[in-house]
Simulated assay, not measured.
Amino acid sequence: MSTTHDLVSALKAELKAAGVTYADLAVQLGMSESSIKRIFAKADMQLSRVDDVLRALKLDFADLARRIADEQPASRELTLEQEKAVVADRKLLLMAISCLSLWTFEQIVGTYTLSEADCVRYLVALDRLGIIELRPLNRYRLKVAKGFRWRPNGPVMHYFRQHVVHDYFSGGFDDEGELLMLVHGEVSPSEASALVERLQRVGSDFAQQHLADQKLQPAQRRAYTLVVGMRSWLFAAFRDLRRHPDPQDR
């Protein structure tokens, strides 16, 4: 979708929200209603005309641009280059995870031994990578979907397997709100796919609840990490005992 199309669509939405009809706008701009309809139908508007509409709406262009940016579809997966850049610096990775968890600048500085200057520098780096949009006063907007996934065989998951898996699974999983399940079984491939879809919905539910609970005070929230996995696999210690090795086990 072109930028002009986005701009005109946003103006339409603002007109509707303000209860301003094309007829009302035509009167304010000294134009015919048919001309206004034609301009919006073609989604082709000169900047001078955009300014006229904004004045009629008593809206600033910067506010409109920000609203357009907020409505852009978020990426559900980072590029290989983005992930490589993130894992190349553990402090940048920490900052990225903090942003994905929607932590404020003040929370990050208050929790970790990063200076304010370092935090700003890493926020700028994430902005340049296209992961966030940095805004005034060290605020930001995520440019990735909250429920996005790291690339299955990408740099971040490689880092996770090397440095995080043992640390994560070494816990007891016996505290409030914690659970560890290991379930074995045989099902059809189609049913396995259906189960994967349901597990993806659980991940999405977790992400949505995280967003909903942002209205709570930090003291009322607790950080959790949900890990969901399902694969056709045989434990390495048992593979040499199998009469007919399955290629999928390798």
Rank of each mutant, 00 (worst) to 15 (best):
S2D: 14
T4Y: 09
T4C: 11
H5R: 14
S9D: 08
S9G: 01
A10G: 04
L15V: 05
A17Q: 07
V20S: 10
T21S: 10
Y22M: 12
A23I: 12
A23C: 10
A23P: 01
D24G: 13
V27W: 05
G30K: 02
S32L: 13
S34Q: 13
A41W: 07
K42H: 13
D44L: 07
D44R: 09
L47P: 04
S48K: 07
D51R: 14
D51A: 15
A56Y: 03
K58R: 11
A62Y: 00
D63G: 13
L64P: 01
A69H: 10
E71C: 06
A74D: 09
E77R: 07
E77K: 06
L78G: 09
L78A: 10
L80K: 12
L80Q: 12
E81P: 03
Q82Y: 07
E83T: 08
V87A: 05
R90Y: 15
R90E: 15
L92W: 03
L92R: 04
L93K: 07
L93M: 07
C99Q: 02
L100F: 12
L102H: 02
F105I: 00
F105W: 02
G110W: 04
G110S: 03
T111S: 13
Y112P: 01
T113R: 14
L114A: 02
S115M: 09
S115P: 10
V120E: 14
R121M: 14
R121H: 14
R121T: 13
R121Q: 14
A125Q: 03
A125C: 04
A125T: 06
L126Q: 06
D127H: 08
G130N: 09
I131D: 10
I131G: 10
I132S: 05
E133Y: 08
R135D: 03
L137H: 07
N138T: 00
N138Y: 00
R139E: 06
R139P: 01
Y140R: 04
Y140L: 06
K143A: 15
V144F: 04
V144D: 02
V144M: 04
F148Q: 08
W150N: 04
W150K: 01
R151P: 01
R151S: 08
P155S: 03
V156P: 05
H158T: 15
Y159W: 15
R161L: 11
R161D: 11
V164E: 06
V164S: 06
H166E: 15
Y168R: 02
G171T: 06
G171F: 00
G171E: 09
G171K: 07
G171S: 09
D174K: 13
L179E: 08
H184A: 15
G185D: 02
V187L: 11
S188C: 02
S190C: 00
S190T: 09
S190D: 09
E191S: 14
A192N: 08
S193P: 00
E197G: 03
R198A: 09
R201N: 07
V202H: 01
S204P: 00
F206V: 08
F206A: 10
Q209D: 11
H210V: 00
H210Q: 05
P218V: 12
P218T: 11
A219D: 13
A219E: 14
Q220C: 10
Y224A: 15
M230K: 01
M230E: 00
R231Y: 06
S232D: 12
L234K: 13
L234C: 13
A236S: 14
A236M: 10
A237Y: 11
F238H: 12
R239N: 09
R242E: 11
R242G: 02
R243A: 15
H244T: 15
H244I: 14
D246M: 08
D249R: 01
R250Q: 13
